[in-house]
């Protein structure tokens, strides 16, 4: 879906001036912990996070994340937004929770990006 549609869906606000409304958002990753974000292997992913420290932008820059959605009504400080602008990463804010944001994007066709497991082989359902 287009960035502009995501904004409408999440009732979001774009914090940065670059016109990216036509940008396609088709993969996402939701994380608050930076090391978790750094375990990403897929590029061209949108990051959904509730962490607003400047490191989020640095990590996103290192990983070639294409856009960042800050959830839970969190607003990064101006310096963080300016930094994102400088490295060309559009940022959006929404008051919605991370759960709802993920749910809505997923329902509209956005899919998880690939990443590697943290430990050991995968395991199915067992009770």
């Amino acid at each position: 879906m287009k960035f502009a549609d995501v904004m409408e869906l999440l009732d979001g606000e774009i914090l940065e001036g670059v016109d990216v409304s036509e940008m396609i958002i088709d993969r996402a990753y939701a994380a608050d912990l930076l090391s978790d974000v750094l375990a990403l292997t897929d590029e061209r992913t949108t990051l959904i996070t509730g962490t607003i420290s400047p490191q989020v932008i640095r990590v996103a820059d290192i990983l070639n994340v294409i856009a960042i959605i800050f959830v839970r009504g969190k607003r990064p400080p101006k310096s963080v937004v300016t930094y994102a602008q400088r490295v060309g990463i559009p940022v959006m804010c929404t008051k919605k929770t991370m759960f709802e944001s993920c749910g809505l994007l997923y329902a509209n066709g956005v899919r998880p990006c690939k990443n590697r497991p943290v430990s050991g082989p995968g395991s199915g359902c067992s009770k």
């Binding site: 608050d32 912990l33 930076l34 090391s35 978790d36 750094l38 375990a39 996070t49 962490t51 420290s53 490191q55 989020v56 590697r116 943290v118």
Partner: peptide, 15 residues
Amino acid sequence: NLGFGAGMGLINMER
């Protein structure tokens, strides 16, 4: 609460 401490730092480096 700043997003650190996932306990993955050294592992991400090794990987």
